[in-house]
């Protein structure tokens, strides 16, 4: 395997990575390490690695700082974090791969297999752009990477009208009338989007609060969305929904 850069501020974590590398069946030709953002930036420019293992916590800086300092990002990236829920969410939004510490050898092998897979490398630049875009912009300008049957699509959050559950799949309805079917269930999206101005109003529906046209009262009532579709509201969610809507307008 080509040139690999391991970035972690703790030496024993680097040793652990080297240990994992020595145990797996892939051959690594050239391995370099860095313990700070500056060192990582320098070595990336100097050695042009093909693969970077990047820890999020780097002294008082982050792996995101490293990424934003590199203009030419033509390397594959695998993030590593111990317990940073915010960072994990950011990886999920951009569909970037990540490993959790302590690193499970099985997960490590899976990540390397993924790296070898040409198909997943196709979207790499887009993924990194989405990550950096999401980090510097507010909720309304964020994007989300959705893997569907056609491949990976990058959607603007403010153009998603609603999401509808369909077993293990979720249909995503866009402002311009298109529909994308994602291979994740609605619970997955609820965890991702509930703090991005989306609200799960029903067991099978989640909506963009910014694209609600009208609410019709009833037992649970129903909503008419921006695209004129109507969505039922579950009785248990009515109160919470009205609270959010009143905050919004």
């Amino acid at each position: 395997m080509d040139t690999t850069l391991i970035v972690d501020d703790e030496k024993h974590c680097i040793y652990n990575m080297l240990d994992l590398i020595s145990q797996c069946s892939f051959e690594f030709d050239f391995i370099i390490t860095a313990q700070s953002v500056e060192e990582a930036v320098y070595k990336t420019k100097e050695f042009k690695p093909d693969l970077i293992f990047l820890d999020i916590h780097l002294g008082n800086q982050t792996g995101f700082d490293f990424l934003s300092k590199i203009k030419k990002r033509d390397f594959e990236l695998i993030f590593i974090t111990a317990y940073d829920q915010y960072a994990i969410k950011a990886f999920k939004f951009s569909a970037l791969d990540y490993l959790l510490k302590p690193i499970n050898p099985e997960d490590f092998k899976r990540a390397l297999r993924e790296y070898k897979n040409k198909e997943s490398r196709k979207y790499l630049k887009n993924k990194m752009n989405v990550l950096l875009n999401n980090l510097k912009n507010d909720i309304s300008k964020r994007k989300i990477a959705i893997s569907s049957q056609e491949g990976l699509e990058f959607l603007d959050l403010n153009k998603i009208v609603r999401l509808e559950a369909d077993g293990n799949y979720t249909h995503i309805f866009m402002k311009k009338g298109t529909k994308i079917t994602a291979s994740k269930n609605l619970k997955f999206f609820e965890e991702m989007l509930s703090d991005s101005n989306f609200f799960r109003v029903h067991h099978s529906h989640m909506i963009n609060l910014a694209l609600v046209k009208k609410y019709y009262r009833g037992k649970g009532g129903y909503l008419v969305m921006d695209d004129d579709t109507s969505v039922n509201v579950s009785i248990r969610k009515k109160e919470g929904l009205l609270k959010y809507l009143s905050e919004q307008y």
């Binding site: 982050t62 995101f64 940073d84 915010y86 980090l135 510097k136 703090d195 109160e239 919470g240 609270k243």
Partner: peptide
């Protein structure tokens, strides 16, 4: 930094939500 501010915002929102839930 960025991470910190967004975290705080999340926390505030959660607190608010919890607060509203009980008062209602």
């Amino acid at each position: 930094m960025m991470t910190e501010t967004i975290k705080c915002r999340e926390r505030d929102a959660q607190y608010k939500f919890w607060n509203d839930k009980v008062n209602s």
